[in-house]
Design a binder for these strands. Structure first.
Lengths: 356, 356
DNA sequence: GGAGCTAATGCAACCGTTTCCCTCTAAATC
DNA sequence: GATTTAGAGGGAAACGGTTGCATTAGCTCC
């Protein structure tokens, strides 16, 4: 009787570079040169033999070994506070595409609005030696110790430390006083102000605000912009309702707004997602949008497009954001000083504000 | 003048296990034992010294080296066809949470409904030696060659190869004739049938269908269920409109539906996302939901909750799906034969169907 | 007091690549 | 024809962990 391999032992050892070398009749180094278009040239004859062996064996280089030797994982991390939010999802997609173009794999993680989770994820990414990290934190001063120690560059995405900046892509240089990481964002304040000005151009005099709360307790630039737009027009601010950055938050904000003694004729809402919830609450109360209450949202996420009515919103240039953030991450600034890049927003006029 | 380190040379080499060992005055092996609660015991005195050294140096084990030595990356991959779809986003979150509980990091990738991208991602995951892969492919027979060669287990998620199966979590054993990977899904057909039966219980006799198209060209089980529900009641099927699984697709489907000569009094829609677009089109045409046209959707994603009117939908048990898929991936079936686990769905009754 | 045991630890091989450095061959130059 | 030179390829040292095996010290038990 012939010795048979154990039936369940289908654990074929992975094909390694040495196997390829053996089959091709060359040294392991040559295989590496071929695979990477390596630092040294290889004769055409050998290159062909190697490629053939690779295909025959189904060889696939081990990324872990490569990362170890190279000191680079060719992975980038990204942490968002809510991956289920269509805006973050679209931002993540843009970043992933940009990264893929440069040969990087994006590790997307969702902190689920929890600081503990965020910290755990940062540690995890640091251990995995990602080559860089995009952070859409809720905190303005996230805990970057682990990253710094591991010497991993970070760019803060969608952070609005912006002070009134007008015009096109602004660049601000910071000193060493800052937390020392680059950040890329949009002009929250400008965008909000423009939205309010647009509502005013529709004749609204009494404009409320539905504002999400950030964990830091800092004043959100969108709120400042809203206020500014109203004051510039010599009007008095309408009611402010604070609620989480969720559909449910927006819904509750809507109910609360309607319970107030005096109802505004228009509201600016700090995110599309909240606006969706708000619209729902408005309809439930039998109100017409925009006739009884006009709505202007913020983000320009895909979900703003097919609500009822369709949401007018302040769109963030997601692709530019992603592209710029990637560049900032891959080419860390020379002087060691951190930069903040701020993009302008664009008004997307649909029906919820009264247009059309 | 004292020699100074070059100002830009802040490239502090990463702290390694050997550094820790040196500082703690023990051998590198002991450090490993402490970090992993390793295979061997360590004296309390030394453990304390090591932990202190780790903290002092900010040591963080290199995951690549660990993966290389261990032969396991402790990463799981997941590919979805559209990460911006709130349903997939919620599924991914559930999977990520389940994986994190077991110490795995989830690599989420978005094939963006492109087969070429899907193939590229699979190759990438195979190279990274993920310990397993969740696949929400659009194809019924995705190209798993790369995975098989790399001996990476796969589970197909949200695939509905289901033949009419009733009742609670069903398990079907397949022979070797199948593609040989496990799959976990929900009873699409049952769910759709239940939705139709519910619409019929509201008195509807003329029920249409808005159906997404899958790439495979196979008949979607939801369509079968819709048909079955109608036939069981002795009714004749309403119009069928086919459109992509997107909001825009749903919107166009709505316009097309209204352009038909005879309008149904209710529709079953194959996904929440399409239903959102459909609602928008209906409102634009001045129709009332559910009075003029009742709508029943499918998925139970978070976005169904705050539409106007709120969507009645067939909810998929996302958490169970994720949990089960993870277990199937981590504990590959013994006999080598693949299993298919199917979960029942649940009707979430809101207002779009006529309830409340 | 020596054999035998256990607990704690150190040594070194291995995981699969990348790449430096050296050797070897063959062609080009004088 | 000898010497230089470039082009190709091989050997082997990292990279930073894990872990089997050997070693040591400190016991107990006869």
């Amino acid at each position: 009787m012939v010795a048979m391999p154990h039936p369940t032992s289908h654990a074929k050892a992975a094909v390694t570079r040495d196997d390829v070398a053996r089959l091709a009749g060359v040294s392991p180094a040559v295989v590496s040169y071929v695979v990477n278009g390596g630092p040294r040239a290889v004769s055409q004859a050998n290159e062909a033999k190697v490629r053939q062996a690779i295909k025959a064996l189904g060889y696939r280089p081990n990324a872990a070994a490569r990362a170890l030797a190279l000191g680079s994982s060719e992975m980038l991390g990204m942490i968002v506070s809510d991956a289920m939010n269509p805006f973050f999802a679209s931002l993540a997609r843009a970043v992933e595409n940009a990264a893929a173009e440069r040969g990087y794999t994006l590790l997307l993680a969702d902190s689920q609005a929890s600081l503990r989770t965020e910290r755990r994820l940062i540690k995890n990414f640091a251990a995995r030696r990602v080559d860089g990290l995009f952070l859409c934190s809720m905190l303005f001063e996230p805990d970057l110790m682990d990253l710094e120690q591991a010497d991993i560059p970070v760019v803060l995405l969608n952070h609005s430390t912006d002070l009134a900046t007008a015009g096109s892509p602004a660049v601000m240089k910071h000193g060493a006083g800052d937390h020392g990481s680059n950040s890329v964002g949009v002009a929250f304040q400008d965008g909000a102000r423009m939205a309010v000005e647009h509502l005013i151009s529709h004749g609204h005099q009494h404009i409320g605000l539905v504002m999400g709360g950030n964990a830091g307790g800092d004043l959100d630039a969108r709120e400042v912009g809203w206020h500014q737009g109203i004051q510039n027009a010599g009007l008095t601010p309408g009611p402010i309702v604070r609620a989480p950055f969720t559909r449910e938050g927006g819904h509750r904000a809507g109910q609360e707004l309607l319970a107030r003694a005096e109802r505004p004729t228009a509201v600016f809402v700090s995110s599309d997602q909240q606006a969706v919830g708000l619209l729902c609450a408005l309809h439930e109360a039998g109100l017409r949008v925009p006739e009884d209450l006009a709505v202007f949202a913020f983000d320009g996420s895909p979900e703003s497009e097919y609500t009822w009515p369709r949401l007018s919103t302040v769109a963030q240039p997601v692709k530019d954001l992603a592209q710029t953030a990637l560049e900032a991450l891959l080419a860390p600034n020379p002087g060691g000083e951190s930069q903040t890049k701020i993009f302008p927003t664009e008004l997307v006029l649909r029906t919820s504000c009264g247009c059309h």
